[in-house]
Computed example of a mutant assay.
Amino acid sequence: KPNPFHHDNFHYNADEDYYVCPMGQHMRRIGTARSKTASGYRSESARYRAQNCKGCPLRCLCYKAKGDQRTIEVNHRLNEYKRKARELLTSEEGLKHRGRRCIEPEAVFGQMKFNMAYRRFRHFGKDKVTMDFAFFAIAFNIKKMCSKIAKQTKNGGNTPLFGLYMLLSRILHLENRIFWKNPRKSVA
């Protein structure tokens, strides 16, 4: 980030566990702050405080809070994750994958999010989210295949998958009829 007064741009001495502000003052660790998000995720941030900011010529640029000691909170675990992600993204293989990203998956994710309103997972937990997305992906691919076969059939072409298309269309039509006669509550 271009802001020299943001704590991400301060020099950090990992051996002695302190930050150095733009004026060269050491910011010592004063404790740990724990927080919990609405979804239940717990995070831990280290708190660092400068000795004295009174009379500092950069104080008005550095922070606007009352008091003579600037305090920052740093989540070291999050910073480590960001560092690893940055290394992977800027590696040779990461650059190759990022170059293909705009071509391959972006259009599909756009259709999923905008056209089919699939913006959130409906379950919690890694295995349940995997299952949720797998079912959605299967349904998405079947829908795509059916529309492709229908388009080929409409244009007069006979496809080897025409029988599969007819079977799927009967099943889906029957399923819709059953659902509308006996509506059930969703389990999600």
Rank of each mutant, 00 (worst) to 15 (best):
R47E: 01
N155T: 05
F114K: 09
L167H: 15
G157R: 08
N141A: 07
G24Y: 04
A134H: 09
W180R: 08
Y81T: 12
H76L: 13
Q25T: 04
E104F: 14
Q69T: 13
R98M: 15
R59M: 04
C21H: 00
N13C: 13
I30A: 03
R59K: 14
I72S: 00
C60M: 09
A46Q: 03
T159D: 05
G156C: 02
C146V: 04
W180H: 12
F136V: 12
R83M: 03
K54M: 11
K151P: 00
C62H: 01
L172I: 13
R77F: 10
E87L: 13
V20K: 04
P22W: 02
I142V: 15
A38K: 14
P57Y: 12
I138E: 12
C21Q: 03
E73S: 12
S91R: 14
N79Q: 09
K126L: 11
L174H: 09
T159A: 01
R170C: 06
V74F: 00
K96V: 10
K1R: 10
R47V: 02
Q152K: 12
Y118H: 15
K151R: 02
F5D: 03
T153C: 02
D8M: 02
K181S: 06
H7N: 03
R29I: 00
K126E: 14
S39G: 08
F135R: 13
N79T: 06
K84E: 14
K82D: 07
N182R: 12
S39L: 03
